[in-house]
């Protein structure tokens, strides 16, 4: 029986590759958007505008305080009630962007806050504008602190894409879920799914470990 199911699994393997492609697509788009939004919000969060800081703070607390699956349900079920109709795929991207940006925002803010006041003062004394201070002096130094956890966060984001399977996006985990109904070999099916995730996330884990060691010096 096992051999039979294994043969079936090999037969529908292209289906898994499609799922892997979908997972990669969601992951890639999310990493880019989350990084951009996260950096922008991070600068606001470590900035001086108290009102903006508070607003970002509340948003971050909401995201960090609730499970991602609940956030997906909120985006997918509640937005239509408010008149915003979203397909599963854009809803997944939106939920990923909301969630990932908040975590990256915290990492960026932590990195910026780790730079001593003296650096800001020296940059200001040289007559640089606030944006120049950030771009030329603060962020390049903060990157040392930001980079290792940022890559670690990327790994988490890639893995979190599995949760969007709950709203029916045909990505890797959903493919496994659909398959296991027809091929009732749970260990086999989800080992395959796991192995495919491993292939994309393990290299990033190695990079993250490497950066951590390198930046620690």
């Amino acid at each position: 029986m096992m051999a039979f199911y294994f043969a079936r699994l090999v037969e529908i393997f292209p289906f898994f590759l499609k799922g892997l492609w979908m997972t990669s697509k969601i992951a890639f788009i999310s990493l880019v958007t989350c990084t951009l939004i996260g950096f922008a919000l991070g600068m606001i969060r470590s900035g001086n505008n108290i009102i903006l800081k508070r607003i970002v703070g509340i948003y971050v607390a909401f995201v960090r305080g609730t499970p991602f699956v609940v956030q997906i349900f909120i985006v997918f079920f509640i937005l239509p009630e408010w008149g915003i109709q979203l397909e599963a795929f854009p809803a997944a991207l939106l939920a990923m962007a909301i969630m990932g940006s908040a975590f990256i925002c915290e990492i960026v803010a932590g990195g910026i806050d780790s730079i001593s006041r003296g650096q800001w003062e020296a940059a200001a004394s040289s007559g640089l504008t606030l944006v120049q201070q950030l771009r030329l002096i603060i962020v390049p130094q903060a990157m040392k602190v930001i980079l290792p956890p940022l890559v670690g966060q990327y790994v988490l984001l890639i893995k979190d894409t599995s949760v969007v399977s709950v709203i029916g996006v045909m990505e890797l985990t959903r493919v496994g879920w659909v398959t296991v109904v027809r091929i009732p070999e749970g260990l086999m099916v989800f080992s395959l799914v796991g192995a495919l995730y491993f292939i994309i996330s393990y290299p990033l884990i190695l990079i993250s470990n490497y950066l951590e060691q390198k930046m620690a010096v």
Partner: peptide, 23 residues
């Protein structure tokens, strides 16, 4: 440690949920 860290929790849950009965 490395296998757990590089695969999603949801996949691990399904692995056990669908896998344990086959054992």
């Amino acid at each position: 440690i490395e296998v757990i860290r590089s695969t999603p929790l949801l996949v691990q849950i399904y692995f056990l949920y669908f896998g344990l009965p086959t054992l």
